[in-house]
Design a protein around this nucleic acid. Structure first.
Lengths: 188, 188
DNA sequence: ACCTGAACACCGTTCAAGT
DNA sequence: ACCTGAACACCGTTCAAGT
């Protein structure tokens, strides 16, 4: 009995959760019901503790949201690192937005006051794009070309996820039109 | 006395505020301190009543935010209607984002759960772009061209406002590079 | 050392009571 | 008819007290 209930000897209670589990729960909650529903209570309930216990592992709610943003960017970076053409990158980028719309919005268009990922995570998510942009536009214009591509892709998918394409017409056609246009525009 | 304090005869109290004034206060608050600070209490204080009184004029906080979004889009539409070239539209669009960053973010990249403007307001903000896009790309590709332009411009300014261009290099140069690239790309 | 209930300062919103 | 204080159900966060 004493070996199980170790607190009977005044020893520390065994951990009932972990930072990893908390971030995972937060990411699920974000995708399932949006940033507003990502409350400390909801996260705590999901991992099986009370809200105040979370403060042993994260500084506050903003810090938790930042961890979610950084985990999201790491995943995106990994996926974009595979791409070798503009079309590859574009499709991978868009697919990610469709799979994780809330996380995508969190990292690409955080509202004012929403915490953002550290610089290194944002840089990491752009290296794949920068590589391909450099090949097409030349090293002198790599950064500008990468920014043109990223702005277009992020803008397009954000608008799409926000239902901003309400005028009819095929969104897929507009996407392919854009991919072709951007690729041509940034190719030296 | 009775003519001044009309309530002494059981008559309605004179209005102490108006919907217009409330929306104006909300827009100021949004721009001054962000969406999170746009609370019913703060708006009420700004117009000189108590929070519960606001519910006589707006259904709830979301409805008020939607009114702010719609007022913002009306103003943007008016400004874009003047433009005759891609560069005109692009610069006007970007200038608007710089002048009203919080309102710009609210309408271009509302977070999940954030109320959005009615369709007619979003359509109105695209007519100027659609007109110029049609002239350049031909009517058959007007919609796709407009979407390519809008996605790029919205994405670029959003990234800029979010400080996503941290890699160095001139942001203005990247903007001009993009304007030229997009204009060429959508010109038939 | 981790976890908890209680407490505090905030929210948005409702509603009976004032004028 | 409009406005208000009081109340309710929520938040995030702190902290003393438990184990």
């Amino acid at each position: 009995m004493a070996t199980v209930n170790s607190y009977t000897r005044g020893m520390p209670t065994p951990d009932r959760t972990s930072l990893d589990e908390i971030v995972r729960a937060a990411r699920e909650l974000l995708e399932d019901s949006g940033l507003a529903s990502l409350t400390m209570s909801a996260v705590a309930q999901r991992v099986g503790v009370r809200a105040p216990s979370l403060y042993k592992r994260v500084r506050d709610r903003d810090a938790l949201i930042q961890l979610v943003a950084e985990a999201t960017l790491s995943e995106l970076a990994e996926r974009l690192d595979q791409g070798t053409t503009v079309a590859d990158l574009a499709d991978e980028f868009r697919a990610f937005g469709h799979e994780r719309p809330a996380a995508f919005a969190l990292v690409m268009t955080p509202g004012a006051g929403t915490p953002v990922a550290g610089d290194q995570f944002r840089v990491a998510a752009t290296t794949g794009i920068l590589r391909v942009a450099g090949e097409l536009a030349g090293q002198d214009h790599a950064l500008q070309a990468a920014r043109t591509f990223t702005a277009w892709a992020a803008g397009f998918v954000s608008m799409e996820l926000n239902g901003a394409f309400g005028l009819g017409g095929s969104v897929d056609d507009a996407w392919n039109f854009g991919v072709t246009a951007i690729a041509a525009a940034i190719t030296r």
